[in-house]
Amino acid sequence: MNAMDLLLWSRGPGLGIAIGIFLFGMVLRLFEIYSLGRKRDLAPARTGGEGSGWRTMFTRSVPDRAQFKRSPVVFTTGYIFHIGFFIVLLFLLPHIELIRSISGLSWPALPTPVVDLIAVITLIALIVTLIYRIMDPVRRLLSTFGDYLAWTVTFLPVLTGYMAYHHLLFDYTLMLALHILSVELLLVVFPFTKLTHMVTLFISRWYNGEWFARKGVAS
């Protein structure tokens, strides 16, 4: 199998398989969660908290100032790599073309050197989070194989994309194939690791916001 075969496989059957596993897994996970149900709260709620679940879905993205000061590394690197990852994902032209070909939606791209710089910053932030995860006692204790796996499959697409663009290590064709395959690995692993948080955090925040709001607290 040569590089072009690999590229064609990754753009063809590979992508279909990866998207299939991703969607299968995520739908399954949502059923797993909601099938457990929740008892209706019989305690009369305080008034004025309606819609708080929806509100908390968004407000929880902004930390309390005092808490920010207590965990600056996690907050800073966390913001940088999340935002960076999504800028690279959503504003590099080839990616927009991919989204357009699947969904018909498109928007203007950022100049490639800008995306390139953001990719570097994202990679650095991801490396810092990894080092922090290994060095910091709390994160080291909490970390499981799944955490390192999730980190790896997040890091690889950015890295291989960067390397492909800069013709590092391998020829572009092979690197592009590896880049697409790394994204497919991310999709395959996604539903079965903590990466599900991208979807489920909105469920969690809703429950949290709703729970607190019934008690009259904006969480």
């Binding site: 996970r29 797993e32 969660i33 909601y34 099938s35 457990l36 149900g37 929740r38 008892k39 808490q67 207590r70 965990s71 996690v74 907050f75 966390g78 995860r133 910091d136 709390v138 994160r139 909490l142 970390s143 499981t144 955490d147 903590k194 599900t196 948080h197 489920t200 955090l201 469920i203 969690s204 429950y207 729970w211």
Partner: peptide, 19 residues
């Protein structure tokens, strides 16, 4: 229940709760 299942599905082991 469903809230707990969503909480465990969402935890990213960031450790911010420690602080």
């Amino acid at each position: 229940d469903a809230p707990i299942a969503s909480y465990f599905s969402s935890c990213v082991r960031c450790g911010m709760c420690a602080e």
